[in-house]
């Protein structure tokens, strides 16, 4: 005898099965004590759960919410400013920081004995010490960005869900 799986029985119990599926399960139940017993268990347990009755929150909750709302200034929370200079200031600071880093690193590079060896090459003569440091920065930056991108793309919740699905948490269908 082909038993409907537990998902179908749960859907049937909560009237979520479509008509065809519901008729199929109903017909099956007339001749299957195991499935009928499962539904009885479900009914018994959910009946027990009903003893944890609903309670009501205190009556002043809404007033407290309104107080909270009045305390928080609206403009910071829901009205976005159309134009802000802050991002531009941040970009300028970032560019200055990168230029300073380039200057510092090329200073170090030119005092290394290695520089005397490699400066003879045509490509190094074209790039210059600043160009070489910029290329190294670019390669290093690309490497770091590509390494951490998968981690950034996956927020922790999605990661948790993936792990759950892979490990299945010992759940059985």
């Amino acid at each position: 005898m082909q038993h409907p799986n537990k998902d179908r029985l749960i859907e049937f119990y909560y009237s979520e099965a479509n008509d065809l599926e519901a008729k199929r399960v109903f017909k099956h139940l007339q001749s299957c004590n195991d499935c009928l017993e499962y539904l009885n268990t479900l009914d018994h347990i959910t009946g027990q759960l009903d003893h944890f009755v609903n309670q009501t929150p205190s009556e002043d909750t809404f007033d407290l919410i309104m107080k909270d709302i009045e305390v928080v200034p609206l403009k910071n929370t829901y009205k976005k400013e159309l134009f802000s200079v802050l991002p531009f200031i941040r970009i300028v600071i970032f560019i200055l920081f990168v230029l300073a880093a380039l200057h510092f690193c090329q200073g170090w590079l030119t005092i290394l004995p290695l520089w005397e060896v490699i400066r003879e090459y045509r490509i190094i003569q074209v790039l210059g010490s600043y160009g070489l440091v910029a290329v190294v920065f670019f390669i290093f930056g690309s490497f770091v960005t590509l390494s951490i991108t998968p981690v950034l793309l996956m927020d922790s919740e999605r990661l948790k869900n993936m792990i759950r699905q892979v490990c299945n948490y010992g759940e059985t269908k």
Binding site: K6, D7, I10, T41, I45, Q48, E171, T172
Partner: peptide, 26 residues
């Protein structure tokens, strides 16, 4: 919950079995 329906039903089934276990003594 941003979880597939099949997983939810599976969890529900498992939860019912555990509740049965805990409530049988009662």
């Amino acid at each position: 919950t941003n979880t597939p329906e099949g997983t939810l039903k599976s969890r529900f089934h498992r939860a019912i079995l555990l509740l049965k276990e805990h409530l049988t003594g009662m």
